[in-house]
Structure formats: C-alpha cells, structure tokens
Amino acid sequence: MKTMTFRQPVLAATALLMSFTTFAQEENKFEIAPAADLVSSYVWRGVYQTGPSVQPSIALSYAGLSLTAWGSTDFSSMSDPNKGKEFDLTVGYGIGGFSIGVTDYWWAGEGKRYGNYSNSHFFEGAVGYNFGESFPLGITWSTMFAGGDKDADGDQQFSTYVEAAYTFSVLGVDVTPGIGVSPWTGMYHKEGKDGFALCSIALRASREIKITDSFSLPVFAQCIVAPNQDNVFLVFGLSIK
C-alpha cells in the first residue's frame, strides 16, 4: 500500500500522487534509484496500517518503463508477526504527464507465506495524469482486479481509490493538498459503511533541511483527515535518496 506520487509516502503515497511508482524518462537511459523513508506512522489511503516504520525502495527505469520494489517494516513486527511487513512490486510506464502501472501488494506479515497468491496478494491497476508545471494537478484512478480483495461471499469487489493532489511552493516549502475517494464499497470502507466514501483529505508540507554544504535532509509532515474511518492522523517522515 502506498501514497502516490504514485508510491511515495504522501498524498502516498502516498504521495504527490503515488499508489504505484512510474518514471517518465526524457532520454533513453537506464537508471537505478534507491531510496528510503522513516515515518512516524504508516497511513495508506486514509486507513491506519502500522506505527513507526522503515520504508525502503529501489526503482529500475529505462525509456519510460520502470520496475519498482517497495517495502515497509514496522518496528513492532517482531513482537506481532501478523502485521508490520509489506513488500510491493510495480511495473509502470510513463510518457509526458500520463502514467500507467500494475502493482502486486503483499502485506500478510512477518513469517507468512509469500507464495499464497490467491489470498495474500492484491493486484491493482492504476492510471494517472499530471497536468504539468503550469498547473501541477495530478489525478490517479486505482482499482484492485485480482487476488485477496474479496467480499464476505468470496467475490472480487474491485476496490477502487481515486486521488487528486496539487503541489505548490510557499516560502521554500512544498505544499501538497490532496483528496481521495472510493466510488463504491471496498477495502477502504469502515465496517458497516457502503457506497461512495470520502476516504482522505490531506495536507502535506515538505522541505530540505541543510546539514552541510553538500548534504540536505528532506523532511515532511502530513495532516490527514479520514472521514470514512472517523479518524485523524499527523505523520512525520524523513527521506533518504
């Protein structure tokens, strides 16, 4: 799970607009991009996942195509083996402001079988568009289409999350307000709630703190209101790239 850009903790997260990670390359060159985030809590699409977590990633990209591995490990995962560990793989393509991707989510927990694809894995397709620097609005539609995303009767419920975020700069701080909705009943809904859901209203602020002349540390804070869950969150994070 993740907030977008397509998958970086904000709004993904996620954030940014990211439930998957894609790279639009202007040149046909191969790139490897390792990164990691340290977050005070892991909140995905308005739903609390775990407490303080380390979230590393590595992305391989060439000519608009990308393959990204992203993970999250909660500091308490060793004491609670039923949660705290996630491993996601995304294949994506981006050209101009358009991006498309398929993600295999796995968050069964530490010590659980990775190979249980029918129940432990969640497969999602996502499509997004960013209008560019003159109007920095990004919109993403993400739908689960296979795997463990099933309702009480065992039927695929095609859980869908639609996210919009707009990024601008104020006094050297990048500010990203965003909103996320689920158009029909799915995995993002609190038990007992059905139909259209307002999942997340978020405001993220990020900047780089200068440590030395050659090194700066990116930090961010994000306030998240989750009406569908009747909850609120304030998340702090550090990024290393």
Score class of each variant (00 low, 15 high):
208 E>Q: 13
197 A>M: 04
190 K>F: 05
140 T>A: 10
213 D>L: 06
171 L>P: 00
187 M>L: 12
135 F>H: 00
139 I>D: 03
136 P>H: 03
225 V>A: 10
153 D>G: 13
142 S>N: 01
214 S>F: 13
133 E>G: 02
230 D>W: 00
159 S>V: 09
179 I>V: 13
181 V>M: 01
137 L>S: 02
195 G>N: 08
140 T>E: 13
187 M>Q: 10
211 I>L: 14
210 K>T: 01
187 M>A: 11
202 A>M: 04
190 K>S: 11
135 F>W: 03
145 F>L: 09
168 F>Q: 06
192 G>N: 10
157 Q>I: 12
128 G>P: 08
206 S>L: 09
181 V>C: 07
136 P>G: 09
144 M>Y: 09
206 S>G: 08
146 A>Q: 08
129 Y>I: 01
205 A>H: 03
147 G>S: 01
206 S>D: 01
182 S>W: 09
216 S>L: 09
181 V>Q: 06
182 S>A: 14
165 A>W: 05
217 L>F: 02
164 A>S: 10
166 Y>T: 14
217 L>H: 12
153 D>T: 14
195 G>L: 01
210 K>P: 05
180 G>E: 07
152 A>Y: 15
228 N>C: 09
202 A>Q: 06
199 C>Y: 04
204 R>Y: 06
168 F>T: 14
180 G>D: 01
201 I>Q: 05
169 S>T: 15
197 A>Y: 06
136 P>L: 01
194 D>C: 04
129 Y>F: 07
158 F>Y: 15
177 P>A: 01
162 V>I: 13
221 A>R: 00
212 T>C: 14
165 A>S: 14
173 V>Q: 07
134 S>G: 09
186 G>W: 11
223 C>A: 14
161 Y>R: 09
136 P>Q: 04
202 A>F: 00
158 F>P: 02
201 I>P: 04
